[in-house]
Design a protein around this nucleic acid. Structure first.
Length: 649
RNA sequence: GGCUGGGUAGCUCAGCUGGUUAGAGCGCUGGUCUCAUAAGCCGGAGGUCGGGGGUUCGAGUCCCCCCCCCGCCA
């Protein structure tokens, strides 16, 4: 079976971020899995390099446009190489074959009457490369997407008869419920199309950095609309319009996109394909976005997650496992070091890594590292059957792009292993001289690990290869067939004593940006061991009663305004809302650590029933709580915003 | 404003066409084993299933109203 998987081509207006990595990881996982189970697989990714925005960005840097595109494109490609992405082709829309292919497609659409010439006039956003109707513009005629100013543009343009495909598209969605995944997105697309489709302007004369129209049309002024150009990459990569040798990979099985570009892929793209008489892809999968510590990422906030940075500190495959496991396909996910660390420790170290270590230890003590499956079926049919049932069910999840469920299920195999060891306690059996039984349990777990590793391989290719190597086999289509399809067991082998694959992570490995650090939930102290527990951890001396404590009124305050106190290097004068009629004026000695601007709009804890005092002649009606150590001072703040005036205690 | 989807344990979520004491993972907590990476295993606490009506012998699950969140569209 042929299986074609694509990511979108990434626009070269900036470097790769976590979203690009996420899409690419999913696609790579699908591609690797497809190859593993023996499909003939083609995995495409690449870069989208045309358009006015690129032309202008290059001009700003005083670089030739092509050179600019070359450079950014290379950063993507390098990152994917660094991340061990198994793409078969990295296409660029500036590739000669691609341009040729798009022209062939354009000519064909023109010939069959789906493209015609007219005029377009409207408010155009250069940044988004989109026209917006008057009604959609924001105040002052700004772009509703990016907020930048739009300009009125009237230009001669070729149009694609999108309106003609309204009905065929709706019919197709109806007949193919699995075309758009997840379902919630499908509904959105359908309701959009039902709202009516306008013909699509597909050429521009306002800039020249793009694919020119076919020579037969003799329209040197026009270049193609970036989306027509970009979308066609999925077939030009296979040689559409040039050398069509690979076109038998079409239609694609799965085309992954971010939710922001679903409309283009679920409406325009299938319409183009219909016009060209090509079949439509089986699935368009729209995934969600990532936030950081619960907040939207943006350059201005400085909280953007650099995938390279994360993988450098935590390992690409751990990062990748986290992304695939953490969030249901289609949903937005939240990245935080805490969540990543929790996943790594709990799933990878405790469940998987430790399990491998357990059998290494036992086989060392009981059988000089030799593991033999001879007696596994005799003593552990139940466990084997349970595990096989789980392994058999996994494909379903993968087909629905439910990778988190896939992993969730797969992990039950490790659980079977851990439970089996407990239940059969090989160390007891050895003492009783029932060596066969003890060794059978060890071998059972080795087999469970082997089988699970095969199924984990497409998500953690290198790590699972290491596991397989320790278990004396190699993960290939052949071993997949043997261990998973035919449910066979491992040959006798000598297990390798390898150091722990997933050392526990006790504290964040990555330096946080200052802002993010404030927002990061405090890392829980490792809980003290039972025997360390004393009656109390404080001496009786100087203790107060709870009533005494509540004599202090601590409230949450929102900083409405902040300014520096003249002639003072330490003091800031704040106006803080405590939910009272008027804000309090509070003078605080925190200027060395916090700028006035950075405080406005944030929340602090305030001692509200403190006798007012004068500092530098200014009245201060409260005290702000802060903690100080040798590294400096930081404010004590609510973890999440609370209403001004909420009491703390 | 229109249309989807959703509001279930501290957190993230599962609960199909209504049916015994509402589930999982993580977290918290008690116990326990010792092969193992302060890992594993067993047990426990914790939910008026957004609110209010209604249908029904019986509703988280169906109907109506209201509140709130996300998304798409305007």
């Amino acid at each position: 079976m042929k299986n074609y998987i694509t990511t979108p081509i990434y626009y070269v207006n900036g470097e790769a971020h976590i979203g690009h990595a996420y899409t690419t990881f999913i696609a790579d996982t699908l591609a690797r899995h497809s190859r593993l189970i023996g499909n003939e697989t083609y995995f495409l990714t690449g870069t989208d390099e045309h358009g006015q925005k690129i032309e202008e960005a290059a001009k700003k840097l005083d670089k030739p446009t092509q050179q600019f595109a070359d450079e950014i494109s290379a950063t993507f490609r390098n990152l994917w190489d660094e991340f061990n992405i198994s793409y078969d082709q990295f296409i660029r829309t500036t590739d000669a074959e691609h341009k040729k292919g798009v022209q062939v497609a354009f000519a064909k659409m023109f010939e069959n009457g789906d493209i015609y010439k007219d005029f377009y006039e409207g408010n155009y956003c250069v940044s988004c490369e989109t026209f917006f109707p008057e009604s959609q513009l924001m105040d002052g005629g700004c772009c509703p997407d990016c907020g930048r100013a739009t300009t009125i543009l009237k230009e001669e343009s070729y149009f694609f008869r999108l309106s003609k495909y309204e009905k065929p598209l709706l019919d197709y969605y109806e007949a193919h419920p699995e075309f758009i995944l997840p379902k919630s997105r499908r509904n959105e697309v359908i309701s959009f199309v039902k709202g009516g489709l306008n013909d699509l302007s597909v050429t521009r004369t306002s800039f020249s950095w793009g694919v020119h129209l076919p020579e037969s049309l003799n329209e040197p002024k026009h270049v193609m609309y970036v989306w027509l150009d970009a979308l066609m990459n999925y077939v030009t990569a296979l040689g559409y319009g040039t050398d069509e040798a690979k076109m038998d990979f079409w239609p694609a099985n799965t085309q992954l996109v971010g939710k922001d570009i679903l409309r283009f892929h679920a409406i325009y793209w299938p319409a183009f394909l219909m016009s060209l008489g090509l079949p439509l892809p089986k699935h368009i999968g729209a995934h969600g976005w990532w936030t950081r510590d619960g907040e939207k990422m943006s350059k201005s906030k400085g909280n953007v997650v650099d995938p390279r940075e994360v993988s450098k500190h935590y390992g690409v495959e751990n990062f990748r496992y986290f992304m695939m496991r953490e969030v249901p396909f289609g949903q937005d996910g939240d990245f935080s070091q805490r969540a990543l660390i929790d996943r790594m420790n709990s799933d990878l170290s405790n469940d998987l890594g430790n399990l491998l270590n357990r059998i290494i230890g036992m086989s060392e003590k009981y059988s000089d590292f030799v593991i033999n499956s001879v007696d596994v079926e005799k003593y552990h049919t139940k466990e084997l059957n349970d595990a096989h049932a789980i392994l058999d069910s996994l494909d379903t999840y993968l087909n629905e792009l439910q990778l988190h469920r896939y992993l969730e299920e797969l992990w039950k195999v490790f659980s079977i292993g851990n439970k089996a060891i407990e239940e059969h306690a090989p160390w007891v059996k050895i003492k009783e001289g029932r060596n066969d039984e003890a060794l059978a349990t060890v071998a059972l777990v080795a087999n469970l690990l082997a089988k699970a590793s095969v199924m984990l391989h497409s998500i953690m290719p290198s790590t699972t290869s290491t596991i397989a190597d320790a278990l004396g086999f190699e993960i290939t289509t052949k071993s997949y067939t043997k261990l998973i399809v035919n449910k066979e067991l491992l040959e006798s082998f000598t297990i390798k004593k390898i150091p722990p694959l997933f050392p526990r992570v006790d504290e964040p490995l990555m330096q946080e940006a200052p802002k993010a650090m404030l927002d990061e939930a405090p890392i829980a102290e490792p809980k003290p061991k039972m025997e360390d527990k004393k009656e109390t951890t404080v001496s009786e001396e100087g203790l107060i009663t709870i009533d005494q404590f509540f004599q202090t009124s601590i409230k949450i305050g929102t900083v409405l305004n902040a300014e520096e106190v003249p002639k003072s290097s330490k003091l800031l004068k704040l106006q803080v809302d405590l939910g009272e009629e008027y804000p309090r004026q509070i003078v605080a000695g925190i200027r060395e650590y916090y700028s006035a601007e950075s405080l406005i709009g944030t929340q602090v804890c305030v001692v509200a029933n403190l006798k007012p005092a004068k500092l530098m002649g200014l009245l201060s009606e409260g005290m702000i709580l802060a903690a100080k150590d040798s590294d400096g001072l930081c404010l004590v703040r609510p973890e999440k915003p609370r209403q001004s005036g909420s009491s703390v205690g």
